[in-house]
Amino acid sequence: MGSTRERIAVDAMGGDHAPKEIVAGAVRAAEELDVQVLLVGQPQQIQSCLEEHGTTRNLEVVPAEEKIAMDEEAMGVRRKPKASINVAMDLVKQERADAVISAGHSGAVMASALLRLGRIKGIDRPAIGAMFPTLLAGKSVIILDVGANVDCRPRYLEQFALMGTVYSQYVLGIETPKVGLLNIGEESSKGNDLALKSYQLLEAHPAIPFVGNAEGRDVLSGEFDVIVCDGFVGNVLLKFAEAIGEVLLQITLEELPQGLRGQLGSAILKPNLRRIKQRIDHAEHGGGLLLGVDGICIISHGSSQAPSIFNAIRLAKDAIGHQVLQRIQSYYGQAAEQTRSSQ
């Protein structure tokens, strides 16, 4: 497309607030992040939203005749080859885009990514990695998997740990990230069969800086940089974390004194409380990176509004710039070559 900017395909029809909020976030990202955004979806609706902003700088509309509704089955992507998420994935497959973002049906996004992009050779299952804040200022922890794989085998968690290590090293800039396994106790003897066998694999892997089990209270402590778990546990953790900000805000407001003092206190504290909520709300980080598929894919929260879409595009830009996909591909390519030479 004659541009050296990162080219990011955005499913404009995916999400509870599509296309208005999706377009608003894309417009801001195109202006502030200097990326080329390809808005995929129904042209008339997208153009109507763009007219509200009065700009098309670094923006392109790519037509898609259909969309996958939030209440449809994930495999609706097979029945609707021209759905916006499929068209967006095809742009990455055809190298017309460097990444794809969608706030649509997460199962459909993952299904489309697997069907259109495929897995990186050597990866059994892709994982959704989500960034969580910690008690240490400016430090985050990446948790994976948070929903792509409900049932896991030990080697899946081993692969999740390796992909999380690569991401932590090259995007977050942590030379030797501390990798933990989410478990019910610190001791290596604790946990179910999956945890026990996964512990052994992680401890023995030369490329994974594994430091041991992480209990639930450790997730937000800042003691770990990467924490791995199966998608069932990870998704429960994610949804719980999403609720914390709203609960904290509501409880604090309820505990303020009644009358004029309470009104004044509420007015003073509200901006600070909302900033706190933003810090601990996963949706404010833009979404989760689907690691393990052969392309950069960000799955945003279904209720994402403009700020979340902006952050998702920034996350995609960072992943592209730090060559996360190529680094994971390179590692597994070298591992496959070593296996062939040893046979």
Rank of each mutant, 00 (worst) to 15 (best):
Q323E: 03
L273P: 01
Q258D: 15
I298T: 04
S303W: 10
K317P: 06
R314V: 04
I276H: 05
L273I: 02
G286D: 04
S266L: 10
G262T: 12
K277M: 11
L315G: 02
L273G: 02
D294T: 08
S303A: 11
G295T: 07
Q263A: 12
N311G: 06
I309M: 01
P307T: 08
S308R: 08
I299Q: 11
G288Y: 07
I280T: 00
H301M: 08
H282P: 15
G321H: 08
L269R: 01
A306E: 11
S304C: 03
D294G: 05
Y331N: 10
R279F: 12
Y331W: 10
L315N: 01
R314T: 00
I320R: 05
A267P: 14
I296N: 11
H285E: 14
H322L: 09
Q258T: 15
H301R: 10
G259Y: 04
G265N: 05
R275E: 07
L260E: 13
H285D: 14
R261N: 13
S330Y: 12
G302M: 08
Q263T: 13
I328V: 10
G287F: 02
P271M: 01
S266R: 14
Q278N: 13
L289P: 09
Q278G: 14
G259V: 09
Q278D: 15
I299D: 11
P271N: 04
D318F: 05
H301W: 11
A319H: 00
I280M: 03
G287D: 03
G265M: 02
L291H: 04
N311K: 05
L273F: 02
Q258Y: 15
L269T: 00
P271H: 01
G295L: 08
S304E: 04
L289C: 09
L290C: 03
S266V: 08
H322T: 12
Q263H: 14
C297I: 14
I299A: 12
K317E: 04
H322E: 10
H285M: 15
R279Q: 15
D281P: 00
R275H: 10
I268R: 01
S330A: 15
I268W: 10
L315F: 01
I328Y: 05
E284V: 03
L264W: 07
S330G: 14
I276S: 04
R261G: 12
S266N: 14
I320C: 00
A267R: 15
I298P: 02
R279D: 15
Q278S: 13
D318N: 10
L260P: 13
D318I: 03
